[in-house]
């Protein structure tokens, strides 16, 4: 067992605290957009921007508090892959919308 402790750092540990914080933040970040949409608090475009920002924030929260991207051995190939992947996801979505915008019936 002691042997194991030595390379313990390699694993995605996290602590109960980080999970609880992540969980609470996620709940808050889910409720805010919900309230905004249900009560029609802002005009449409502003609401869309805000709820998308909340979704991205929640993604980041989960990334750090649940998936522990900060931990793990270096070089962090997983983070590099993720960042490039997200750039390409963004390109796919934004590019499609941009290109197809002029193709509406």
């Amino acid at each position: 067992m002691s042997q194991h402790e030595n390379h313990g750092d390699h694993h995605n540990h996290g602590s109960l605290k980080s999970y609880v914080i992540g969980f609470i933040l996620s709940i808050v970040l889910t409720i805010i957009p919900l309230v905004m949409v249900m009560n029609n608090m802002l005009d449409k475009t502003t609401t869309v921007i805000w709820i998308l920002v909340m979704a991205v924030l929640q993604f980041i929260v989960q990334l750090f508090f649940f998936m522990h991207v900060r931990e793990g051995e270096k070089p962090r190939y997983n983070v590099q892959t993720l960042v490039l992947g997200l750039v390409i996801v963004f390109t796919i979505i934004a590019g499609s919308i941009w290109i197809m915008m002029f193709n509406k019936y």
């Binding site: 992947g85 997200l86 390409i88 996801v89 796919i92 979505i93 590019g95 499609s96 919308i97």
Partner: peptide, 10 residues
């Protein structure tokens, strides 16, 4: 993620 990204784009 890319797979879901393509579906989101669609």
């Amino acid at each position: 993620c890319i797979l879901f990204g393509s579906l989101f784009a669609t």
